[in-house]
């Protein structure tokens, strides 16, 4: 199988289409016959990263590469960056405003959910430059 590449745009502060990239990848993985457990883990990790880009990163991009053994996802934004990544990784820590919390987000579980559901997570972030969340999920361990 040759590598399948997909690129998506993630709009800023627009919840009407937030999650469409992860929904599309979920459908693609199911069509490729990837196991439901892997599809679920990948979709959750990608959706959380996508929502983070919508809420915190002024939108951004999703780049996806799928080969026979894994899926690699890079969610990048040019937002404010994460000031203290160790703190941000702690469950329960959130900088989301009240308007976001009222929608059911902002519980400070996004990054830890991504970590739990991915096999490799690598986050690059720089203040006032942006953040790249690199997620890899293997199809079989």
């Amino acid at each position: 199988m040759s590598t399948i590449v997909r690129d998506y745009s993630i709009p800023a502060n627009d919840f009407t289409i937030a999650g469409e990239a992860s929904s599309s990848v979920r459908k693609l993985l199911s069509q490729l016959g990837v196991s439901p457990d892997v599809v679920k883990r990948t979709s959750i990790a990608m959706y959380e990263a996508e929502i983070n880009a919508v809420i915190h990163g002024n939108g951004g991009k999703a780049h996806v590469e799928i080969d026979e053994s894994k899926i690699y996802i890079c969610i990048s934004d040019e937002g404010p960056g994460i000031a203290d990544l160790d703190l941000a990784m702690q469950e329960g820590y959130s900088t989301a405003p009240d308007s976001i919390r009222e929608m059911g987000f902002g519980a400070g579980m996004g990054l830890s959910n991504i970590k739990k559901n991915s096999d490799i997570l690598y986050i690059e972030t720089e203040i006032n430059k942006g953040t790249k969340v690199n997620i890899t999920v293997f199809f079989s361990k």
Binding site: F15, T16, A18, G19, S22, S23, P36, I44, Y47, E48, I51, M103, G104, F105, A107, M109, G110, N113, K116
Partner: peptide, 27 residues
């Protein structure tokens, strides 16, 4: 009602109860 928590915990076959009715619930 915490969407990330629900995403992590809701299982296939569950009835998910939430007071939220926004688009993110459907996702």
């Amino acid at each position: 009602d915490l969407l990330s928590h629900a995403m992590a915990k809701v299982n296939e076959g569950d009835v998910w109860i939430t007071v939220h009715t926004n688009l993110n619930v459907i996702a």
